[in-house]
Design a protein around this nucleic acid. Structure first.
Lengths: 203, 203
DNA sequence: GCGAATTTTTGCGTGCCACGCATTTTCTGT
DNA sequence: ACAGAAAATGCGTGGCACGCAAAAATTCGC
């Protein structure tokens, strides 16, 4: 309905999420209390839980948003475009930093990878990230079902495509974060997507 | 090294996990306290946390074990067998109820599905299940890398296959649990595996 | 503009959970 | 049987999620 109120809410949510990430990167996950995150945003600790139902959720929120955008973009893109091209294009676009990162210290890909390693080392955070991915996967499957005219409740295809896309994204990210190959996400991600789309026969 | 001690530990761990599942199915997740689980097994609450580092972990443990068996079976199977046949065979075998279920009330597939729905409705449990799947995926990727002589640190293939296998399993399970099609897992799972192996072109 | 209604924030209190540490009990190897 | 190792337990602490009701802020009808 209204604009200002909801935008303010989203701003607070984003600020909390962002503060949680920053503080965790600085001090480590267990050293940051909910109270600290709330204080960094200038809000009461009780209010934090009005926005996020767990400490971990604030950190996974950015991941969730980006993943959800993928599904949204798939819905609003040109309907005629072949499915996998649309998916690849939408996935690649999520790699571009959004406007919210403007007033952050500029992060190279190395710092980003290091930060992610820290996050995923914490079991609670890993679990919450995975849950976020799963939520986005549901949206993605629904979008694909719409696009292909298939039945989400009975057809394997939409869910399989959605799950495979998330799998490819995660694998590409893992390899990037682990840094075995020096290749950037812009290279790894499309390659992984092409592979799952084409099939994975024994080489 | 020793036998009795470790077997007793595993027995306790399994008993705790089993008690957690049973109590949760009966009363619901939030109504069962760690104290209850411990009491059901005849062990101190403090001891529970020597086995599982969270309340949810006990429930995901059965899922974790089964998923890990898949990787183990892939390692110990005939090395000559084509990769995807070996995977499918190993995956199907995990559907057979293990010997630990012998003295449980016989569960039809419907009760099983209902139980799973309850579990996955709880965010904390869903997250923990996903984490268990992720851990197993790592093992699976390593097994596949070994089998194909590929490099886990630089090649996408092993991780992609592992992730796709887990994705297919999860999708098959979702569809089964949701029950849109009346088909059993023994049918859905191989079909999903065949699809991800062959590729997912727009139909 | 202004006051009423709705929404959001906050303070407070409760119950539970994860875990460190020291102690006791149980098991193993010789 | 005994010494040493490993596991179970008791106790205490800090923190987190959340229900509830009061207070503050914002929207909307007029």
């Amino acid at each position: 309905m209204s604009g200002l109120r909801e935008r303010k809410k989203e701003a607070t949510r984003a600020a909390l999420s962002w503060a949680a990430v920053r503080l965790t990167a600085e001090r480590g996950w267990s050293a940051v209390k909910v109270e600290d995150i709330a204080a960094a945003v200038g809000v009461s600790p009780r209010t934090y839980n009005n926005y996020f139902s767990s400490k971990a959720e604030a950190i996974a929120f950015r991941h969730l948003e980006r993943s959800l955008r993928l599904a949204a973009e798939l819905r609003h893109g040109p309907p005629g475009e072949p499915l996998w091209e649309a998916i690849t294009r939408a996935a690649l676009r999520q790699l571009e930093p959004g406007p919210e990162v403007e007033h952050m210290p500029p992060q190279g890909p190395d710092e980003w990878a290091a930060g992610l390693r820290v996050m995923l080392a914490e079991p609670a955070l890993e679990a919450e990230m995975l849950r976020a991915g799963k939520i986005a996967e549901k949206e993605l499957a629904a979008a694909i079902a719409d696009r292909t005219g298939m039945n989400l409740g009975t057809d394997l295809y939409p869910r399989l495509v959605a799950a495979s896309v998330m799998a490819a994204s995660n694998v590409a990210l893992e390899l990037f974060v682990q840094g075995g190959t020096g290749e950037p996400m812009e290279v790894l991600l499309p390659r992984a997507l092409r592979m799952v789309a084409a099939g994975l026969p024994t080489p």
